[in-house]
Design a protein around this nucleic acid. Structure first.
Length: 876
RNA sequence: GGGAGUAUAGCUCAGCUGGUUCAGAGCAUCUGCCUUACAAGCAGAGGGUCCGGGGUUCGAAUCCCUGUGCUCCCACCA
């Protein structure tokens, strides 16, 4: 079969993916084999594939394909997350573009739109993943709002409620005025922001004196219910205990309270207290029984408490109030001030601390088993440095605000009774029953109950993911959950360690009594070459599909893996794709070479081919062992680099060159069989990293029947190998390198043969002579017992080699080189002797170390002697 | 403000329980080569105060202290 010198991934990748799908290789069902399970971190259902996904999914696919080839029953469960806030925001936006206001729709109408949107745009990302070669079990694709997954969420909510873990209460929450919902603390991102510090005058009641208060949020004065000073602040000792001040502009009288919470150093040492709109003020308010005045509507405009500002947006009010204060002389001054402002992760709106009625989950007790599991390595975090962060978070965990004022998501199964109170139940029917019991009113009907309009936080569904994808909440004893759970590896980014990973661990122990996974591989963040995070707004994020189009999926996979030590950020550069593509091409061409060889069945295997084959066999087995070790430590990029070098340098560069028949000459049967065997093992080892090209060549290599695939054969296992052989071959390589250097220095064409003389000693092994002859293009190797004159010379270990050059030798040059070597060796010897003459070294260092130093000494002395003799000879 | 991590070649990183794997790899750079598998290649070469300073030790890139730089996490003082 004709194949060209360039490997063109585009021509084969989709073909093989179809083939794998057709043969159902990705599908897993429980059987007697050991399971290997990964659940995908579900991307947002409306999301698009970005470089972060590429990295995560590539790593997962490598692990899954490797496990599958180790004979395990590999199951990679794909799916998507409903991402309540993000998706709802997108749908609202889309409706707005069509002139539809969300508020004009009923909940049912809105959800209909949302589902339509989901059906249309949802899961594109999963389609995109196929281009990468992801071997997900697509038949198992799940969505966090699938009926059985939603049922799981509701069931868990009711269960936790009945255990007394869930409560409802008014708390200060992070309010997103754009999405008009509460957010958990983790969904708030703080950023530095340039603002002003406003110094406002609060007139002391019954006096002409003022208290000056510094604030960054003058608009909130309308909600002030006190000012506070530190009782130890000498500046305010003169104030009578019952002193009151007037809120500027509105002249509402409020008390001056005293609390050590106030920082004397900051501003003027006077703090305005607005319990409705600041977390700390809220605590002061509780402590001193202050009134709480909420001045904001849910969308961030001011309500009737805003008086003349009612209806205006909070930021417009800030500007206006500054003018008004200034005009009335109540603004002392302003100064530039940088502070941190919280933004909504999803909508980027400035977060407003807001008091509201929300549902909470008590976390402290739930967190205990999850904390222990990680600290005791029942669950291993890779890299382990994340254990610290994890512990800190788990030890300081706060109750989780799980309600969101949205429609897209699982609606909270709490039902309010007409005359107050509520019940929590999985279904309206059960709720009704409970409601009748509770109220003692048997005439209640379902329509009398009003279900809580809020939905649950997205993470309250995804924390069940490793369980719910196998329906382990609804049917805890089903075959699948028993077989696949706990899963093996979780691959995800560290920024959702708390959002998601920790909560999955908590859920695992709470609902299954067992960890959800054994290992968590935390990847880095994909950045560009300049260390900037990849983002749409910077335009520095390449389109993964475009990269695949240009470099092939294998090339892009390699690029992701080459720069991804676990937990380190990876600096992505397109040139890495090139490197990946080039490697594919290298494999392709190695195959073209081997494929083109004619076999002569009668030809006997030469010593050269036999030795080379023995050597590569040892090399291969050593590398396989190293790769296995790397994988147990999740050093995936190191494993890849090892197979990369094995294929490129050892196999292509040394082995194939060593056995390559002369032009148009045939090769013997034993050697070609060995080569094909090696090639097969190399392809199998490479397959998890580069699934497409390895399948293509593997199918080519021998007549494969339909239904066969490299992805379901066994991975080669490392066998014992001859270490001595490898060491000796290294010396052979050194000799050949030295010969190449001599050719270069003396401008000797590669085509001309050379003669090599050896002053043979115990470090010289003549069985490798055929290799030297071929790779060095030698005419003869002669063993001599005296130094050759008129020869270029070099040493490998203690053996001296000579290449007779007759008149071609430049004595001056040669002497110069030898003298430089001599100087170096003398310096080296001096350092060794210094060590050895140090009595304390000889006494204290382990015998082995001293011995190696003595060996170094002998070696160096021998070399120096040889160099001196050679110099003397040339100087004659 | 609190905590963690990290600093090794131009870049990205290995370097385990101190000692021949001790100064490494890949990429990049430079110099030769259009050598019948591959120029997406081959053969070579250069390149490092192992962040600064102290200490422990016979011996430190490695352990300890300290300073500096960078990164991340947590808290959110109005």
């Amino acid at each position: 079969m004709e194949i060209g010198p360039k490997y063109i991934p585009q021509e084969i990748e989709s073909k093989w993916y179809e083939y794998w799908l057709k043969n159902n290789y990705f599908h897993s069902t429980p059987d007697e084999r050991e399971p290997y399970t990964i659940v995908i971190p579900p991307p947002n259902v409306t999301g698009m594939l970005h470089m972060g996904h590429m990295l995560n999914e590539t790593i997962q696919d490598v692990l899954v394909r490797r496990a599958r080839m180790q004979g395990k029953n590999a199951c990679w469960v794909p799916g998507t997350d409903h991402a309540s806030i993000a998706t709802e925001a997108k749908v609202v936006q889309k409706l707005k573009a069509e002139g539809i206001d969300k508020n004009s729709l009923t909940r049912e109408e809105f959800l209909k739109h949302a589902w339509e949107w989901k059906e249309k745009h949802g899961g594109i990302i999963l389609k995109q993943l196929r281009r990468l070669g992801a071997s997900c079990d697509w038949e198992r694709t799940k969505f966090t709002m699938d009926p059985e997954l939603s049922r799981s969420v509701i069931k868990v909510f009711v269960d936790l409620y009945n255990k007394g873990k869930i409560y409802r209460g008014i708390r200060m929450v992070n309010w997103d005025p754009a999405a008009q919902t509460a957010l958990s603390d983790e969904e708030v991102i703080y950023r530095e922001s340039q603002g002003k510090l406003y110094y406002l005058r609060y007139r002391i009641e019954g006096s002409d004196e003022y208290l000056i208060v510094a604030t960054t949020r003058p608009e909130t004065i309308l909600g002030d219910t006190a000012v506070c000073v530190n009782p130890n602040d000498p500046r305010y000792q003169h104030l009578a205990p019952e002193t009151r001040v007037l809120v500027p502009l509105i002249n509402r009288s409020i008390p001056v309270i005293r609390d050590e919470y106030v920082d004397i150093e900051f501003g003027t040492g006077v703090l305005k207290v607005t319990p409705a709109h600041d977390v700390n003020d809220y605590m002061l308010g509780e402590k001193y029984g202050l009134e709480t005045i909420d001045i904001f509507n849910d969308n961030g405009t001011l309500n009737e408490h805003g008086q003349q500002y009612a209806g205006m947006d909070r930021f417009d009010v800030r500007n206006q109030i500054e003018k008004d204060l200034d005009a009335t002389g109540l603004l002392e001054k302003t100064e530039a001030y940088t502070n941190k402002v919280g933004y909504s992760e999803r909508t980027n709106a400035v977060i407003e601390p807001k008091l509201s009625m929300q549902w909470f989950l008590k976390m402290e007790e739930l967190a205990q088993p999850a904390l222990r599991a990680v600290m005791e390595d029942a669950i291993q975090l890779v890299p382990a440095k994340f254990k610290n962060t994890y512990r800190y978070w788990m030890e300081n965990i706060k109750d989780w605000c799980i309600s969101r004022q949205l429609w897209w998501g699982q609606q909270i199964p709490a039902y309010y009774l007409p005359k107050g109170g509520y019940v929590v139940a999985e279904t309206p029917e059960q709720a009704l029953e409970l409601a009748r019991q509770k109220s003692g009113n048997d005439s209640l009907t379902i329509s009398d109950l009003r279900q809580d309009p809020d939905v649950l936080d997205t993470w309250f569904s995804s924390w069940l993911w490793p369980i719910s994808v196998f329906d382990g909440i609804n049917r805890p004893d089903n075959e699948e959950i028993k077989y696949y759970y706990p899963t093996n590896d979780l691959v995800t980014a560290p920024d959702i360690l708390f959002f998601w990973v920790a909560r999955m661990i908590i859920a695992g122990y709470e609902f299954k009594g067992e960890k959800p996974f054994r290992n968590v591989y935390l990847t880095g963040i994909v950045r560009d070459k300049l260390r900037r995070k990849m983002s749409k707004s910077l335009g520095n994020s390449p389109d993964p599909l475009d990269l695949i189009d240009r470099y092939g999926a294998d090339g892009v996979r390699l690029a992701m893996l080459l720069c991804s030590a676990a937990g380190n950020d990876l600096l992505f550069d397109e040139s890495l794709c090139e490197q990946g593509r080039n490697f594919g091409n290298k494999i392709w061409n190695a195959y073209r070479l081997v494929n083109g060889w004619q076999v002569d069945e009668k030809l006997e295997q030469s010593d050269n081919n036999r030795i080379a084959t023995e050597w590569f066999d040892a090399m291969l087995n050593r590398t396989l062992a190293q790769i296995e070790a790397d994988f147990t430590e999740y050093r995936i990029s190191e494993a890849l680099m090892k197979i990369y070098k094995l294929f490129w340098d050892e196999f292509s560069g040394w082995y194939l060159e060593a056995i390559k028949p002369a032009y148009q000459c045939p090769i013997d049967r034993p050697t070609i069989d060995a080569v094909r065997g090696f090639f097969d093992k190399l392809l199998r080892t490479l397959h998890p990293f580069m699934p497409f090209i390895t399948e293509e060549i593997w199918q080519h290599m021998s007549e494969r029947r339909d239904g066969e695939s490299i992805m379901i054969v066994r991975l080669p296992e490392a066998k014992p190998y001859d270490e001595t052989l490898l060491e000796r071959f290294d010396q052979v390589k050194e000799v050949i390198s030295a010969l190449r250097n001599i050719r270069k220095e003396h401008n000797l064409p590669n085509k001309d043969t050379l003669e090599l003389c050896v002053l043979a000693d115990s470090n010289f092994h003549p069985e490798f002579n055929p290799i030297l002859m071929k790779m060095g293009n030698l005419s003869a190797i002669r063993t001599v017992d005296a130094k050759c004159s008129d020869a270029a010379t070099f040493m490998v270990k203690t053996t001296e080699y000579f290449v007779p050059l007759n008149d071609k030798i430049d004595t001056e040059e040669e002497l110069k080189k030898l003298k430089a070597d001599l100087t170096y060796m003398e310096g080296f010897l001096a350092s060794v002797l210094k060590k050895l003459s140090n009595e304390r070294f000889v006494q204290n260092a382990p015998a082995k170390v001293v011995e190696t130093e003595r060996a170094k000494q002998n070696d160096a002395e021998a070399k120096i002697k040889a160099l001196q003799e050679r110099i003397a000879q040339l100087s004659k």
